[in-house]
Write a protein that binds this DNA or RNA. Structure first.
Length: 641
RNA sequence: GCCGCGUUAGCUCAUUUGGUAGAGCAGUUGAUUUGUAAUCAUCAGGUGGUCAGUUCGAUUCCGACACGCGGCACCA
C-alpha cells in the first residue's frame, strides 16, 4: 500500500502528498502567509480542523480567515470560549448547547439564578483573558461510556442527555481548550487567540431546553462575532441604523398609529396611518378585480357550533375570543374568514361551471395571541386579512395555485420586494382528514410549485391543520422574518362544512378550497413597508404627499391657491402658513417624511411657480404649478392604475 | 404563556446611599415677516404605570398586577 495520497486543489491542481498530512502542513508548503491566514480545511465539501489528518485522496480547500466559511468557525469558537468563561466565573452553571448562528452565536446555560445583562461585562472580560492566553483547541475521540462517565461525574446532566440520545455506535468528539472541554463536532480554529477582539455579548434571554415549552427554561446568552473589531463595528452600526427604521418608532414619529394598554395587541390607527392602510386596500382591490375575484363580507361573530364543525374550536379554541353566553348560544369572534366564506358559497346550488369561484374578503380577525408574542404591527391580536377562498375542482388546483403565486410575487414587486423566501409546510401532527386526502393536497401543491419554477424550502410538519401551505416570508429592518402571503390547499373544510357542487355527470361533489392571503395581515404588511422604505413611502402611499410652506405671510393667499389646485388634482396636500422660518418648516416636514415640500415666497407668487424639494435630497427646483401637477400625475397613482 | 429587563411632562431623556422631581423639543402667550434641516423671550405642564407593603417619610426598598422591550415557546 502506498503511503502517498493525491489531493486536488480548488483550481484543479493535483498534488501527491504523504498520507496523513494535515491542512496546516499543506498550507505551509504553499506559503508562510497562507499558513498564517488559514484556519480550517474543507475536505470533500466538509470542513475540518487544520490539524485533521487526511488519509485518502481528496479534494481540498484551505479556509482562510477572510473566507465566508470562516465566520461560522469563529462564532462557534466564541461560543466555546464564552462557556468556559461562564463556568470559570459561575462554577455552579451547567452547559447545554452553543451553536453559531447568523451574525453570531449563543450558548444556553442551566443555572438556578438566570444571568442578567449586568453579568455580561464580567463574562466578556473573562473571554478576553481566555483568548489572550491562546489556549489550543484540541480534538479527542472518546467512547460513549467514557464520555457519559465524565459528564455524569461533573454533574452535567444536559450533556449526558445529549449523549444518551446519540446512536450507540457513534463515537464522541470532544474539543478541549486549556482545561475546559465540551462535547462538540467541530471544527475549531487552532487556538483561542485567533478569535481576536471582534466579538461582543449582546443580550440574555430565556430559552427552553430542547426548544420544548414543557421543559425547564435555560438562560441563553447571545453574542455577535466577526473577524476583527472593524467588522464588528460595521455590524453594530448596521444594527443602529436598522433600529432607526423600526416601524414602532417611525409610526410614532409619523403619527400613523398607537397602542395602549386597554387594547393590547390592537391598533389605534391615526388619520395618516389609516390613509396608508386604505391605499393598500384600494390597490389590492383593484388587483383582485382584475384577477377575477368577487368581494364578500361575512359576520365577525359566529356561533361556536360552526367553529366546532370546522375543527377550529378543537385546535384553537383556547386562542379564540368568545362572548358571554347571554342566551344559550356562545359566539366566537372570528379568528379566520373561511367558515364565513363557505357559508356564502353554500347559498344556492353551485355547478362545476361556476368554478373556480374566487371570493375575497377584507376580513378583520381576532386571535388571542400569547402576550409574549405581541410585537408592534407585526404580531397583533386584531388584524385585517386580504383573504380569499378559491373554490375549485381538484383538476384546477395546480393552475389556480400557480396563478396565486404569480399574483403574490407581482404584487410584492410593486413594493420593491424582489427577494422573497417561500416555505412549503406539509402535514402537521395534529390535523383533520385522512392521509389519502393529505397526499393528494401536498402533491397538488408540489406540482403547482414546479409549474411556477420558484425556489422554496421545505418546512416539515408546519402546515395548517386542514391542509399544506406555502408561506411567503419577508424580513424586517432588524433581521426578523415575518410571514406575509400564504396559500393553503384545503381538501378538508369544504366537506366538514358541507360545501358541494354539481359536476358534469350530475353528481354532487365536494369542491377544493384554496385559502390565500397576499399581503397577509394588512397591519403586518404596513409595518414591513414602513421599515422597508425607512418611512420614505413612495408618493402613492404617502398619507400626506405635499406640504405647501410659505416663506412670509405675504404669500399666504398664493399658498392657498396652490394647495387648492393640488387637492383638485387628487394630491393629498397640507399647508403650513405658521409664523416660522422656512428652514424650520423644512426640517419639521422632512422629519415627518413628507415626500414633497413646496416653498412659496414672493418670487414664486409673482411667477406662479413653486420651489420643489423632495425628501432625501436638498436640491430644489422651481417649476410652474401646472408643470408640477402634470409631472406628479402618474407617480401619485398606484402601480396598477 | 415562560425567562430577563423596563415604565419619570405630549415626545426624547436626566435626577446614586429614601427627605414629595429637572432639561431639551413640542404646547401657551408675546416679539420677530423670515429663502430651504431648529429666531428670541414668556408661561404652563408631573398623585413618578397601577395597587399594596416596609418606613416618621418611598420616584428611590419589598411584593402583586398591567403594559412594553429582548428572546424562547406559540402563530389557524
Amino acid at each position: 500500500m502506498s503511503d502517498k495520497i493525491t489531493i486536488t486543489f480548488p483550481d484543479g491542481n493535483i498534488k501527491s502528498v504523504k498520507k496523513g498530512i494535515n491542512g496546516f502542513e499543506i498550507a505551509e508548503e504553499i506559503s508562510k502567509s497562507l499558513a498564517k491566514e488559514s484556519i480550517a480545511i474543507k475536505i470533500n465539501s466538509e470542513i475540518f480542523d487544520l490539524k485533521r489528518n487526511i488519509e485518502r485522496d481528496a479534494k481540498i480547500q484551505i479556509i482562510k480567515k477572510s473566507d465566508e466559511e470562516a465566520l461560522d468557525i469563529i462564532r462557534h469558537d466564541c461560543a466555546h470560549v464564552m462557556a468556559e468563561a461562564v463556568q470559570a466565573l459561575f462554577p455552579e452553571t451547567q452547559v447545554t448547547i452553543g451553536p453559531s448562528i447568523e451574525n453570531g452565536f449563543y450558548y444556553d446555560f442551566a443555572r438556578k439564578e438566570p444571568f442578567t445583562l449586568s453579568d455580561l461585562p464580567k463574562i466578556e472580560k473573562k473571554m478576553h483573558e481566555i483568548i489572550n492566553k491562546g489556549e489550543e483547541f484540541t480534538r479527542e475521540v472518546w467512547s460513549q461510556k467514557e464520555a457519559k462517565k465524565f459528564f455524569k461525574d461533573k454533574g452535567e446532566v444536559y450533556k449526558l442527555e445529549l449523549i444518551e440520545d446519540l446512536d450507540p455506535e457513534e463515537e464522541i468528539s470532544i474539543y478541549k481548550q486549556g482545561e475546559w472541554l465540551d462535547l462538540c463536532r467541530g471544527p475549531h480554529m487552532n487556538s483561542t487567540k485567533e478569535i481576536g477582539k471582534g466579538f461582543k455579548l449582546m443580550k440574555v434571554a430565556g430559552a427552553y431546553w430542547r426548544g420544548d415549552s414543557s421543559n425547564i427554561m435555560l438562560t441563553r446568552i447571545y453574542g455577535t462575532a466577526w473577524r476583527n473589531e472593524k467588522e464588528l463595528d460595521i455590524h453594530l452600526k448596521q444594527i443602529e441604523e436598522a433600529e432607526k427604521r423600526d416601524h414602532r418608532k417611525l409610526g410614532k414619529q409619523m403619527s400613523l398609529f398607537h397602542f395602549q394598554e386597554e387594547a393590547p395587541g390592537a391598533v389605534f390607527w391615526h388619520p395618516k396611518g389609516w390613509q396608508l392602510f386604505q391605499s393598500l386596500i384600494n390597490y389590492m382591490r383593484l388587483r383582485q378585480d382584475r384577477a377575477g375575484y368577487v368581494e364578500t363580507n361575512t359576520p365577525d361573530l359566529l356561533d361556536k357550533s360552526l367553529w366546532e364543525a370546522s375543527g377550529h374550536w378543537e385546535k384553537f379554541g383556547d386562542n379564540m375570543f368568545t362572548t358571554d353566553p347571554k342566551e344559550e348560544k356562545v359566539f366566537a369572534i372570528k379568528p379566520m374568514n373561511c367558515p364565513g366564506a363557505v357559508e356564502v358559497y353554500k347559498q344556492g346550488l353551485k355547478s362545476y361551471r361556476d368554478l373556480p369561484l374566487r371570493m375575497s374578503e377584507f376580513g378583520k380577525v381576532h386571535r388571542y395571541e400569547p402576550s409574549g408574542a405581541l410585537h408592534g404591527l407585526m404580531r397583533v391580536r386584531a388584524f385585517t386579512q386580504d383573504d380569499a377562498h378559491i373554490f375549485c375542482t381538484e383538476d384546477q388546483i395546480t393552475e389556480e395555485s400557480k396563478t396565486v403565486c404569480d399574483l403574490i410575487l407581482s404584487i410584492y414587486k410593486d413594493f420593491g420586494f424582489n427577494d422573497v423566501r417561500i416555505k412549503f409546510s406539509d402535514r402537521p401532527e395534529k390535523r383533520v382528514g385522512n392521509d389519502v386526502v393529505w397526499d393528494k393536497a401536498e402533491e397538488a401543491l408540489r406540482l403547482a410549485m414546479e409549474a411556477t419554477g420558484l425556489e422554496y424550502t421545505l418546512n416539515p410538519g408546519e402546515g395548517a391543520f386542514y391542509g399544506p401551505k406555502l408561506e411567503f416570508v419577508l424580513r424586517d429592518a432588524i433581521g426578523r422574518d415575518w410571514q406575509c402571503g400564504t396559500l393553503q390547499v384545503d381538501l378538508n373544510l369544504p366537506e366538514r362544512l358541507g360545501a358541494t357542487y354539481v359536476d358534469e355527470d350530475g353528481q354532487k361533489k365536494v369542491p377544493v378550497m384554496l385559502h390565500r392571503a397576499l399581503f397577509g395581515s394588512l397591519e403586518r404588511f404596513t409595518g414591513i413597508l414602513i421599515e422597508h422604505y425607512a418611512g420614505h413611502l413612495p408618493l402613492w402611499l404617502s398619507p400626506s404627499q405635499i406640504v405647501v410652506a410659505t416663506i412670509t405671510s405675504e404669500t399666504d393667499n398664493y399658498a392657498f391657491e396652490v394647495k387648492d389646485q393640488l387637492i383638485k388634482n387628487n394630491l393629498r396636500t397640507e399647508i403650513d402658513i405658521r409664523n416660522e422660518k422656512i428652514g424650520y418648516k423644512i426640517r419639521e416636514h422632512s422629519n415627518s417624511k413628507i415626500p414633497i415640500i413646496l416653498a412659496v415666497g414672493k418670487k414664486e407668487s409673482e411667477d406662479r411657480t413653486v420651489s420643489i424639494r423632495r425628501i432625501g435630497s436638498s436640491d430644489t427646483k422651481v417649476m410652474k404649478l401646472e408643470e408640477l401637477i402634470n409631472s406628479l400625475q402618474k407617480e401619485s397613482l398606484s402601480p396598477i392604475e
